[in-house]
Each structure stands twice: as C-alpha cells, then as structure tokens.
Design a binder for these strands. Sequence first.
DNA 1: TAACAGCATGCAGACGATAGCGAGAACCAA
DNA 2: TTGGTTCTCGCTATCGTCTGCATGCTGTTA
Lengths: 341, 341
Amino acid sequence: MVVWASMNIKEVAARARLSTATVSRTINQSGLVRPGTAEKVKRAIRDLGYIPNTQARALVSGRSQMFGLIISDIVNPFFPELVKSFEFAAIHRGYEVIVANTDYNSERMGGCVRRMIERKVDGVAIMTSELDRHLLAELSHRQLPIVFLDVGKLKPLISNINVDYSNGIREAVQHIVSLGHQRVGFISGPLTLKSARTRRSAFLKCIGACGFSEGQRSVVEGNHKIDGGDSAMTALLSLPKPPTAVLTSNDLTAIGALRAITRVGLRVPEDVSVIGFDDIELSQFTQPPLTTIRLSRDELGRRAFDALFEMVAGQRRAGQEIKVSTCLVLRESTAAVKKTP
Amino acid sequence: MVVWASMNIKEVAARARLSTATVSRTINQSGLVRPGTAEKVKRAIRDLGYIPNTQARALVSGRSQMFGLIISDIVNPFFPELVKSFEFAAIHRGYEVIVANTDYNSERMGGCVRRMIERKVDGVAIMTSELDRHLLAELSHRQLPIVFLDVGKLKPLISNINVDYSNGIREAVQHIVSLGHQRVGFISGPLTLKSARTRRSAFLKCIGACGFSEGQRSVVEGNHKIDGGDSAMTALLSLPKPPTAVLTSNDLTAIGALRAITRVGLRVPEDVSVIGFDDIELSQFTQPPLTTIRLSRDELGRRAFDALFEMVAGQRRAGQEIKVSTCLVLRESTAAVKKTP
DNA sequence: TAACAGCATGCAGACGATAGCGAGAACCAA
DNA sequence: TTGGTTCTCGCTATCGTCTGCATGCTGTTA
C-alpha cells in the first residue's frame, strides 16, 4: 500500500482508469455502477488506501455529519456516560460528535454555540439546563435542529427531553414512609442552576403530596458536589430535631452526606437513611451502597441523538417531547427508622 | 440581525460592496486591507451575523484545525480531566477536538483511526497504551503528527509523553518504609493492558530497589475498577501473612481495596495502609481520604496538545520526548504499622 | 506631465467531492 | 436498418473559502 499526503478521488479514478464520478458513485453505493466496474474501483481504493475527505463531502452536500453536544462539565460524573451513549449512537450512524463544556458558565455557552456553527454541525444537543434566549435565536435562525434537556418549548426543529422526576421521587418518598420515617431532609443543588431548582421543586411537591407537613421537612442548599453535600448534611444534623432520612439532588451530594454522617459517629442506614439521585456508577461502591433514584444517562444520550437524527433525516421537522422516566434503586443506605431512644 | 441558511462570504461582500477576497483578507487579518475598508467589512459581518464555514476553509487550506484524541473510556474517571485540559488548550488556539473511545478494545482502535483520517484531523493524541503496528503505519504514511502516552519510539512527527513513574513510586515506598511496614502488597491492573504492565514493573522495580525481598511482597491482579480492587484485596487479606501496606495501580482499585478491608472489620489506616495511583478527584473524598501517587491529567492533556501544536505549526518536525513526573500526595489512608499483636 | 513605486482591491482558479445532464453502448421490437 | 428504452459512465458546474496575479489608484519624483 502506497500512500501520500494528497490522496484524493482523482488518484483513485486514474488508477482505476475511470472518472471521478464513477468512483464517487461506487463509494456512495448509488447502484448505478456495473459490478465489474465497481470491483475495479474498490481495488484501486484498497491499493491506494484511499479514504474520502469528509470536509469536501460536507461542503457540497451541505451536511457535515457532525452533531454538537453541549454539556456542563465532563468532569462531573453525570456526563461521561451521557457523552458515551450519545457518541455510540452517533458513530453507528456515521456521525461525529463535538463535545463542548460550558463549565456552568453561561458566558461560555456563547463560545460553544459559535464553535458549533463554525463547524457547521447538523444539530446540537444542549444537555445543560441553562440557555440564553439570544443564543437560542442564533441557533434557531440558522435552522439548526436542537434538542434540550428539561428546558425549552417545542418548536419546529426543537425537541425537548423531559425527565419525569415524579415517578422516581414518589417511589423514594413512599419507601421512606414505609420505613416509618417522620422527618425528612432534602439537600438541593446550587439554586442558581435551573436543573437544581427543577429537582428541588419536584422533591418538595412529592413530599407534600405524601403528607409531610412543613415542620416535618427541612431543606438545605448544597452544590452538587461532595463537599457541599458534606456541609449541608452537617447543617441538617445540627438541627434541634434532625431528619432521620435525607434525599439529595445528586449522588455526589449523597456521598458527601454519607461522609458527614459517619464523621459525627452516626451510622447509615441505622441512624440516618440517605437517598441519592442519578445512580452514577460510583454509587454502587459507596459505603454502604447507595439507594438512589436512577436517571439513565444511557437513555438520555440515546434519545437525544435519535431526536436530532430524526430531524436531520427529515422524518419529522416538528419538535417532539420525549419522556425519560426515573425509578428508585434499592441498595443499602436506607432502613427502618430507629425506635425513639 | 437577519440570518438565513446560506449565509456566506459572498453575501458579506455584496453588502459591504467589496469583493469576497477583501472580506477574506479582513477576516484573516492579512494586514493588506485599509482600516476603513476593514471597518465596512466588519460592519457587514456583524449586521448579517456571518460566521465563516470552517469546512470550506479546511478544504482550501488543507488544515482542518481539528485534533483527534483517542482514549480508552470516557467513563473511567482518569480520562475526563485529561480530555478537559486537552480541549481547553485546543479551544484557546482555535482547534476543535474529536474524542474517540476504544473501550480497551484494540479492534475499535482501527475504527477510531479511520474516523480521524476521514475527518482530516491535523494530528492525533493517542492516550491509550496499546497500538497496532499496522495502524501506526497507516497514520504515519499520511504524515499525521502523533503524540503517544508511554509507548512508541520517536520519529519525525511522532512525539511521546513519558510518565516518570519512578519518582512517585519511590516516594510512596520510602513513605511505607518510614512507617515501618515489612510486608507490602501490590494490586495491578489487568495485565492485558500495556499501561498496567508498565505500572506493575515500575512498582516492582522500586520495591526491589528499596530492599524488599521476594517474600516480603505479594502481587495480585485487579482490573483497574472498584470491584477488581475489592476482590484482589480480599485475596491479599486471606494470605497466611497478609501485607500491612498495599499499593495499587489506580485509585479505583484502591477504593475497592478500602471497601474489602473495612468489610472484614479491619480499619484503614490503623490495620492496613493503602496507597492509590492517579489522584482522581474522588480520592480526596474516600473514607479515609486516599494517600495516592499523583499523575497530573491536567499536565498530560496540556502537554499532549502542545506537542501536536508544535508539530503542525512547523516549529519542529522531529518528535520529542516529554517527561511528566509523578509525586506522592499524603492523605489519611497510611499510618505506622501496628505493633505485632 | 510622465514615469514609477507602493499599496489596496478585484478576478479567477484552485481545494475534493457530488450530482445533473448528456453521450454512448447494448438490447429489443418493428 | 431504424427507433426507442435502459443502463453505464464521463463532463462539468457547484459548494464556500483562500490566494497568486493582475489591475487600478494615489502620491512622489524628475
């Protein structure tokens, strides 16, 4: 196999003694090429180690076969799994993925969007929960298919993945109730984030619906990280009547809570029950393994890709509402409330 | 701002009543445009919300301004930080990054490499430790700058990041020795991985150099994940004379080891000392916080990008050897050996 | 005023691939 | 043989941008 830098369709055509058009048609399986001819082309391609130039293809076809994926922070364990499943789905359809982190910073979002447009992606999945209206207009004017997570109204070319928090939370609260808990705490994420606010209100609504009064529940703000969960839990434990069960806005927060609880000499689940949210891989390996509400990132990634793909493939121009459900995963961080000492 | 799908340099030129050439020169700051003219162009660009088409640019310039980044698995917490710092450096230089996972599967590597070539990346960082010679030839023939992690010999356009394991490991072993430990265990990664083998032999060499005899050390194979660390540690503990200090091939393994130790009722660090490797963010938050050997992914990502950038910028065609060091981070999972009971 | 720099701008041809159109070949029926 | 159809394949414009060369303009000098 001989290869040099400027390997292109002409070289292949020359070697096969055919025109570039025929080579192109063979590559794209248009079905208009005689089998014998196609064979010549394939041999030339193999001999030369030719790989088509996607840039040029994109230029003429108007589609880059790339999707953008905007997330908050790849270091947050919530996202890698999502990225992976999105990418997996993409590769299988011949798409490439460009990942961009906003670092929870809405100013960086502008840069991300610009990069996406520059690279002429065929669609963007925005898996952060914040979005500037101005940027939305920017994307929208350019006719770019978009899929959001938990925000945004439906419009043509704009889909939305709607997480149904209620099911998982209801199961969790019912679980807590069935274990006899009377005082429940909730550690939210940073309330500057819309996703954190959404989770918080879903939690509160469910807790209210399950018959807990104002006095039976206490809410503290964390930061969706371990240290925030730790200090928030410490605050909860120092209340005059601390909760015997605590729900958290994500698993890292729950892990921090576990740490705070054991540090003051209490035990999980004997003294305090803890329930996480997300079911990141790590939550199987905490001490004790974490009971948590699963939100499948795998499903999220797949659905986000599919939504974009349907829009670019033209199967549907209208945006669609996609439901993703949550459910309780029972492990060992919850137990019946202790008899009053 | 009016924007429609086919916004291009011609539209801008027409609005500014100039030629596309002048617009192009203005955008690329060639310095050949009179300030007044440039101002007209800039206004037209602003009015129209024009963003250049990178695909077309790439086609004519022959550079895509994209780098490929091949990693094993984005879900492994080692990689997200590396990806992030690589990407950060890239963005700042106007580069985009295409990330591909091999899933530790060398067959998938072929697909990754092909994708990179199709997308005409200007260089590839291969941060997995396995590489097919055939694929290397494929990349090499195409004159693609490459940077490897811990493998590969230097050639023109091929750089190598060499992790100096010895410093960190030496510090760790000296630390162990100073605490009076006499029997040390080591939990390796899966020996099918070259990186795991490299770490293992670095460990063994260091341990030997520090005066431990064959009988004083026991080596078990893990899988670089939590469950593997758990079962490997369980195996070590069931030895007739179990080690009092254990080094591991990565932090997840160490976390699994912590779990196995506490499960059988022993305590860390009082009964067994544990030292991890990598210093992933999580290791600050384990119980107890993990003493570990830091390998800065941040530095790895930055250096990998810089190496590629230097090669494409033509500052140096020859591959270079880049050293990245390791060092011990003391936390609370190590302590003096218990007096014989 | 003419000749000549020197700079700013425009023209037009790449870059690599695709697709519409048309040409030629092969085949069949009349 | 002619006319018509079907199937292959080649020619060429095109996508959006960059860039070498040509051109025109301004200002200086003899």
